[in-house]
């Protein structure tokens, strides 16, 4: 089934639900209007690609590389991320609500208007990010760093008392 992801550079309207993808390199690919929910992505490289208006809800990402990826108006709600990298990516208007992320790096990212409401974040870095209008309300955070980030108009919930 992974050939449906690796074949061609642009994928529009793909619906691949409940599948497993292991050790594939789909860097520089463009995904629009796709639904990939309830799938497992194990060591998949999305680096340098585009993900626009796609649903990756209730998925599992292990050791995946989203570096320098343009993610716009998509939803990863309910998904778990383990040892994933998003460094240098634009992740605008994207839904990470109710996600769990362990050992993940969102360094040098633009996360404008993205939401992590009710997310569980452990050992996650958001270094030098734009967090304008991002929401971390009701999230459970431990060992999370927002160092050097712009959090103007960001929402960290009522419990927020300063830097984590």
């Amino acid at each position: 089934m992974s050939d449906r992801l690796t074949a061609g550079r642009e994928h529009e309207g793909l619906s691949l639900v409940g599948l497993e993808f292991r050790r594939i390199d789909i860097r520089q690919r463009i995904f629009t209007n796709g639904i990939f929910s309830d799938s497992i992505f194990d060591h998949v490289t999305f680096a340098g690609g585009k993900i626009h208006l796609c649903y990756f809800e209730f998925c599992r990402f292990i050791g995946c590389d989203f570096s320098d990826t343009d993610i716009l108006f998509s939803s990863f709600a309910g998904t778990s991320f383990d040892d994933c990298t998003f460094n240098g990516s634009d992740i605008l208007h994207t839904n990470f609500n109710a996600t769990t992320a362990y050992d993940c790096r969102f360094d040098d990212c633009d996360l404008y208007y993205s939401r992590f409401i009710g997310a569980t974040l452990h050992d996650v870095t958001f270094l030098d990010c734009n967090l304008k209008k991002a929401s971390f309300a009701k999230s459970n955070r431990s060992s999370v760093s927002f160092k050097y980030s712009n959090y103007e108009e960001a929402d960290f919930g009522r419990e927020w008392r300063g830097h984590n």
């Binding site: 208006l53 649903y55 809800e57 209730f58 108006f73 998509s74 939803s75 709600a77 309910g78 208007h93 994207t94 839904n95 609500n97 109710a98 208007y113 993205s114 939401r115 409401i117 009710g118 009701k138």
Partner: peptide, 23 residues
């Protein structure tokens, strides 16, 4: 069913229901 709001990111009925249950 996909939830498409007038502001902020997209969602789905399933995601919103899970969040509600977790509240």
């Amino acid at each position: 069913v996909l939830v498409l709001p007038g502001a902020g990111p997209p969602s789905s009925v399933r995601a919103e229901r899970v969040l509600r249950e977790n509240e």
